[in-house]
Design a protein around this nucleic acid. Structure first.
Length: 419
RNA sequence: GUGGUCGUAGCUCAGCUGGUAGAGCACUCGGUUGUGGUCCGAGAUGUCGCGGGUUCGAGCCCCGUCGAUCACCCCA
């Protein structure tokens, strides 16, 4: 073991892969921006109470996966395990709910869950999320799903599916729960499973053991208990998805891990990843804001897993030629150490003019410097020795064709401003 | 948190039934004086994850530990 290493289960991105990470994240963010969502930048740690009340104490996330510690003032602090609760807190705290509705925001950053790491599951991971607060319309449900889907399509992803369901309103859920609990009581289950069922009976639908799956086949489904209103709203969401040609599957057995979901709920699943295949998910949350002490506004949002989406992109090979290796236009080489200062100044001037460029040193091995130029991905290179400085003319070499042309050093920046 | 697999040069890995380590790629230098990507030649590189044990002797065996990975729980 090295003396210093990253804490267990964190993901890190460095060149060259970091450019793909950045590309994925920017693509996700852009999809939100073009739909009218605005940035919300929030703290990565919050009062522990926020997550207990917002996410729900019965959830695994809160009961056993939070990074919680006491700060120097004796306050209980938790590194955020998800994004929605923090957004609600901030909206309430700054009275944004008193402004024009809906509030539409996006956010991006690191989230923390103390789970056993696995491919695609990290203790610090990255999400891009959006929230649309203050409107309970099927149109906005559709919009939120479409923002995610558009981003995935823009990235070039194909092997993913969208599962949706509706958890209905409070009344629908209550009557379903009664019947479901009664049904589960007739099953012969082990202690651990019974305990899970007591916290949230819906979880049994998600159990991967075949005997549980078959036992749940005849269990009452929440979708059959939806009120007329919920049913109509869910139908409208489906119509909108259909006309937008966004393929989806209704999955009445889908269960989300956070307690606050109500109404339309959805999940994007990649077919190219292993067990951790959920690349994004979200849904409507009716009571959350009131629960946290704000106005009784409904909202809907999603969280997209940047790490997993990046892995899905790699698995589908969408990056082949879609990205440039570098953002550098020009690579300058000082032939010997004599010219270093001159080239350094020239480089600085070019950069002041907005031209992306870098330099290398020839010293003894010009070959090595040319290799650096090649690896930098720069479109052009130019070697500068005493002759060039004297004449004021350099041979600007096109690295792709290998051809070069003479250019006055003073006019170098004009070569690039045109593109 | 539970269980399985794995941990050898920067990367991907080989190393037979225990005798103190290799390959490919990458890297550095060179193939006549100042031009990369192909080719040829030469070279550097490892406390074999870490700690302990068994043994005359361990990269290969045993225990622990750290990490990765796969699955479960759960989820992005």
């Amino acid at each position: 073991m090295r003396e210093l290493q990253a804490p267990k289960g964190v993901s890190e991105y460095f060149p060259p892969r970091s450019q793909y990470f950045e590309f994925v994240r920017e693509t996700l963010i852009n999809s939100a921006k073009i739909s009218g969502y605005q940035l919300m930048e929030l703290p990565v740690f919050e009062d522990t109470e926020l997550f207990k009340r917002g996410v729900g104490e019965s959830t695994d996330v809160v009961s056993k996966e939070m990074y919680t510690f006491e700060d120097r003032g004796g306050r209980s602090i938790t590194l955020r395990p998800e994004g929605t609760a923090g957004v609600m807190r901030s909206v309430i705290e700054h009275n944004l709910d008193k402004l024009t509705l809906p509030i539409k925001v996006w956010y991006s950053g690191a989230y923390f869950r103390a789970e056993r790491p696995q491919a695609g599951r990290y203790r610090q991971f990255y999400q891009v999320g959006i929230e649309a607060i203050g409107l309970n319309d099927p149109e906005i449900d559709f919009e939120v799903i479409a923002v995610a889907d558009r981003a995935f399509k823009k990235l070039g992803l194909k092997a993913y599916r969208l599962d949706i369901t509706s958890l209905g309103d409070a009344k629908s859920r209550a009557s379903h729960r009664k019947d479901l609990v009664a049904y589960i009581a007739t099953l012969d289950l082990d202690e651990a499973t019974l305990q899970r069922a007591a916290l949230n009976p819906l979880r049994l639908f998600d159990d991967k053991r075949p005997e549980i799956q078959s036992a749940m086949l005849k269990a009452p489904l929440l979708l059959d208990y939806l009120s007329e209103e919920s049913k109509a709203s869910f139908a409208r969401v489906q119509e909108l998805l259909n006309s937008a040609e966004i393929a989806f599957t209704i999955n009445p057995r889908m269960v989300r891990g956070l307690d606050y979901y109500t109404g339309t709920t959805f999940e994007f699943v990649s077919e190219k990843l292993g067990a951790q295949s959920g690349i994004g998910g979200g849904g409507r949350y009716d009571g959350l804001m009131a629960e946290l002490g704000g106005s009784d506004l409904s909202g809907i949002g999603f969280g997209l897993g940047v790490d997993r989406i990046l892995m899905a992109c790699e698995a589908e090979g969408v990056f082949d030629s879609s990205l440039n290796k570098s953002e550098i236009d020009l690579f300058l080489i000082a032939l010997t150490s004599e010219e270093k200062a001159y080239v350094s100044n020239l480089l600085n001037d070019l950069r002041n003019n907005g031209i992306s460029c870098d330099m290398g040193y020839g010293d003894r091995a010009l070959k090595g410097a040319m290799k650096s130029a090649d690896k930098s991905g720069a479109r052009f290179s130019a070697v500068i020795g005493s002759d060039e400085i004297k004449s004021g003319i350099v041979a600007l070499k096109d690295m792709k064709s290998g051809e070069s042309k003479e250019v006055r050093i003073g006019a170098l920046s004009n070569e690039f401003t045109t593109n």
